[in-house]
Simulated assay, not measured.
Amino acid sequence: MPDPKKWLIDQPLELVPFAKWQRTVNLMASLFKAPAGFIVQHTEEGYQVTIASQQEENPYSVGGIIPADTNIFCRKIVQTRQELYVKAATQEDEWLTNPEVSEDGFNSYLGVPIFWPSGKPFGTICVMDFAITDYDEPYVELIRQFRDIVQADLALLDHFDQFRALAMTDELTGLYNRRGFTTVAEQRIQLAKRNDASLALIYMDMNGLKTVNDQLGHPQGDALLKALAESLKQHFRSSDVLARIGGDEFLLMAETNDLDALAKSCQDIDQQLKHHLAQYSDIRTGVSFGLLQMNDLSRPLESWIQLADEKMYEDKRSRRRD
Score class of each variant (00 low, 15 high):
2 P>F: 09
5 K>Q: 14
7 W>A: 11
7 W>S: 08
8 L>K: 05
9 I>G: 09
10 D>N: 13
10 D>H: 10
12 P>Q: 03
15 L>P: 11
21 W>Q: 10
22 Q>L: 10
23 R>F: 10
33 K>S: 15
33 K>H: 13
34 A>M: 06
38 F>M: 07
38 F>P: 10
42 H>R: 14
46 G>C: 08
49 V>N: 15
50 T>H: 13
51 I>F: 10
51 I>Q: 04
54 Q>F: 09
54 Q>M: 14
56 E>V: 13
60 Y>P: 11
62 V>R: 12
63 G>A: 04
64 G>I: 15
64 G>R: 15
66 I>P: 10
66 I>H: 10
67 P>W: 07
68 A>W: 12
68 A>K: 15
72 I>W: 06
75 R>G: 09
78 V>E: 08
80 T>W: 01
84 L>C: 08
87 K>P: 13
87 K>M: 14
89 A>K: 04
91 Q>V: 10
91 Q>L: 12
92 E>P: 12
94 E>I: 14
95 W>N: 07
96 L>Y: 03
97 T>F: 12
108 S>Q: 04
110 L>I: 06
111 G>H: 04
114 I>H: 04
120 K>N: 12
125 I>K: 07
126 C>D: 05
126 C>Q: 01
128 M>F: 08
133 T>A: 09
134 D>I: 08
136 D>P: 14
139 Y>S: 11
147 R>C: 11
159 H>F: 15
161 D>G: 11
163 F>G: 11
166 L>E: 13
168 M>S: 09
170 D>Y: 05
172 L>T: 03
176 Y>Q: 01
187 Q>D: 07
189 I>Q: 00
191 L>W: 03
193 K>C: 00
200 A>E: 01
201 L>Y: 00
204 M>Q: 07
204 M>V: 08
213 N>P: 05
213 N>W: 02
215 Q>A: 13
216 L>V: 06
218 H>V: 10
218 H>A: 06
219 P>Y: 06
220 Q>R: 15
223 A>Q: 11
228 L>Y: 07
229 A>I: 03
232 L>T: 05
233 K>C: 05
234 Q>V: 12
234 Q>S: 15
237 R>K: 12
239 S>E: 06
242 L>R: 00
246 G>K: 06
246 G>P: 09
248 D>P: 03
249 E>N: 06
250 F>H: 00
255 E>A: 08
256 T>W: 00
259 L>E: 01
260 D>R: 15
262 L>G: 02
262 L>Y: 06
265 S>N: 08
266 C>P: 00
267 Q>I: 08
269 I>W: 02
272 Q>H: 13
275 H>E: 15
278 A>L: 15
278 A>R: 14
280 Y>N: 09
281 S>C: 13
283 I>G: 04
291 L>M: 10
293 Q>K: 09
295 N>I: 09
295 N>G: 09
299 R>C: 05
300 P>R: 01
302 E>M: 08
303 S>D: 14
305 I>H: 00
305 I>W: 00
306 Q>H: 15
306 Q>M: 14
311 K>P: 07
312 M>W: 00
314 E>I: 06
315 D>G: 06
316 K>G: 00
